[in-house]
């Protein structure tokens, strides 16, 4: 081979290498130039997909709520539902008929009603920013309770047999009253000697629920757990049990601070509502995840409140849709049918 042949071969080889490098660089350049920094993550957070077998409930009925800003929900009995919002308390029959309209002097923040186990069944407790008003079902005001601190901000009420519990987000405490409005004590004070930090709350959610086993359950949102206090033992200052953990999976509570609402079934199981992705879930008495009532497919926004009835139905206040959605276990008879029979 001559020198010129070598030279030409070298030029051809270098040209081929340059061409390959140029094509590679061009392709890479084109790929990088097209929104390279946002292509890998969807622009909006996506909820987890669930196994259909975990969907334990279906929506069986709903009732439209004639309120601009529905805030809270309670069951008066098996036939009547109380919804608080705007500056009014509405008592509905489950078929949607308004039975009673009770005007309020200011916007309510929470509501609860005495069950058949309560000393005064069907008594209605309405929480406002810094006081509680007690009504009978006729709408007559029975009493007004003032929390011991002026800066109270009451977000939830739970009713047990002889006790009424009021969650005060401003003071990070749950006040315990008797049915006559006498203050009996409080829960949630930090006890450093026992490693209990008290209620750690970072957003405007602080829910409580009373169970039939003599425990008051309160959400400790920042700790992503539910704490059970023995209210029959006044010396007991720290929770006797707690359950729940943070997790992006369905069996835990998502994000920084959840759940936002809880309710306890008669058999001790729990229904929880979360913010972020608006899951409503069922947990066993021990706190093990059992399944889902509703999720982002059914609810456009986090539940404004929820409660459960003695037939294990879950009632969710959907403030965005201005509806109370009644979810029934999938293996149960249709709620609306049972309503019609009654």
């Amino acid at each position: 081979m001559t020198a010129s042949t070598h030279k030409l071969s070298a030029i051809a080889g270098v040209s081929a290498l340059l061409a390959v490098a140029a094509i590679t660089a061009t392709v890479v350049g084109l790929l990088l130039s097209s929104d390279r920094r946002v292509a890998d993550v969807p622009s909006q957070p996506q909820p987890q997909q669930i196994d259909p077998a975990l969907q334990l409930y279906r929506q069986a009925a709903e009732l439209a709520v004639a309120l601009e800003e529905p805030r809270a929900l309670a069951l008066l009995d098996e036939q009547r539902v109380v919804v608080a919002g705007d500056q009014v308390l509405l008592i509905y029959r489950r078929d949607g008929t308004v039975l009673k309209r009770i005007a309020l002097s200011e916007p309510p923040q929470c509501v609860a009603a005495g069950s058949s186990h309560h000393l005064y069944p069907q008594r209605i407790y309405v929480g406002f920013r810094n006081h509680v008003k007690v009504f009978d079902t006729a709408g007559d005001l029975i009493a007004v309770w003032q929390p011991p601190r002026d800066n109270a901000d009451l977000l939830s009420i739970a009713v047990a047999q002889r006790d009424v519990f009021v969650a005060d987000i401003s003071n990070r405490l749950v006040w315990r009253y008797d049915t006559e409005g006498r203050l009996l004590g409080s829960f949630g004070t930090p006890v450093k000697s026992r490693g209990y930090p008290g209620f750690v709350i970072t957003t405007r959610y602080f829910d409580v629920a009373a169970s039939n086993d003599g425990l008051l359950y309160a959400v400790n949102p920042r700790l992503l757990r539910i704490e059970g206090f023995d209210y029959t033992n006044p010396e007991q200052q720290v929770p006797v049990r707690h359950w729940g953990r943070g997790s992006p999976q369905l069996d835990g509570f998502f994000g920084c601070c959840n759940p936002i609402h809880i309710a306890v079934f008669a058999d001790g199981r729990f229904a929880t509502a979360e913010k972020g992705f608006p899951w409503v879930k069922i947990f066993s008495r021990q706190g093990e995840f059992e399944g889902v009532v509703a999720g982002p497919a059914e609810l456009a926004a986090p539940a404004a409140d929820l409660t459960v009835d003695e037939d294990n139905n879950v009632l969710v206040l959907d403030a965005a849709a201005k509806r109370v959605r009644i979810f029934a276990p999938k293996n149960s008879q249709d709620v609306s049918d049972s309503d019609k029979r009654q």
Binding site: A19, A25, T26, G29, L30
Partner: peptide, 8 residues
């Protein structure tokens, strides 16, 4: 082409 790729 190399220059174009580099520029992009």
């Amino acid at each position: 082409m190399c220059c174009a790729g580099l520029w992009l």
